[in-house]
Simulated assay, not measured.
Amino acid sequence: MPKTAERDWSAWLFLAPALVLLGLFVVWPMAYLVGLSFTDGSLRDPLFVGTANYERLFTSESFRQVLFNTALFTAGSVIPSVGLALLAAVVLSRTVPLRGLLRSAYFLPTIISLVAAGVSFRWLFHPQGWVNALTSLAGIAPISWLSSPFWAMPVLILVATWKQIGFNLVIFIAGLGAVPTSRYEAAELDGANAFQQFWHITLPGIRPTLIFALITTVIFTFRSFEPVFVMTGGGPLGTTDILVYYVWEQAFGLFSFGISAAAATVLLVGVLVVTALQLWVAGGE
Score class of each variant (00 low, 15 high):
residue 119 V to A: 14
residue 119 V to I: 15
residue 120 S to C: 14
residue 122 R to N: 15
residue 123 W to F: 15
residue 124 L to E: 05
residue 126 H to L: 12
residue 126 H to S: 15
residue 127 P to R: 04
residue 130 W to E: 09
residue 131 V to H: 02
residue 131 V to M: 08
residue 132 N to W: 09
residue 132 N to P: 03
residue 135 T to F: 14
residue 137 L to S: 11
residue 137 L to T: 10
residue 139 G to V: 03
residue 143 I to T: 15
residue 148 S to G: 05
residue 152 A to C: 02
residue 152 A to Y: 04
residue 153 M to W: 11
residue 153 M to G: 15
residue 153 M to E: 11
residue 154 P to R: 15
residue 157 I to R: 02
residue 158 L to T: 13
residue 160 A to C: 08
residue 163 K to I: 11
residue 163 K to W: 13
residue 166 G to T: 09
residue 167 F to N: 06
residue 167 F to M: 06
residue 169 L to H: 05
residue 170 V to S: 01
residue 173 I to N: 02
residue 173 I to G: 01
residue 175 G to I: 01
residue 175 G to L: 01
residue 177 G to N: 06
residue 179 V to I: 06
residue 181 T to I: 08
residue 185 E to W: 01
residue 191 G to I: 04
residue 192 A to T: 06
residue 193 N to M: 02
residue 193 N to H: 03
residue 194 A to Y: 08
residue 195 F to L: 02
residue 197 Q to I: 13
residue 198 F to L: 12
residue 198 F to Y: 10
residue 199 W to N: 07
residue 199 W to P: 05
residue 200 H to C: 04
residue 201 I to D: 08
residue 204 P to E: 07
residue 208 P to T: 05
residue 209 T to R: 03
residue 211 I to P: 10
residue 211 I to Q: 15
residue 215 I to S: 12
residue 216 T to F: 11
residue 217 T to L: 01
residue 219 I to Y: 08
residue 221 T to Y: 07
residue 222 F to Q: 03
residue 223 R to D: 11
residue 224 S to V: 12
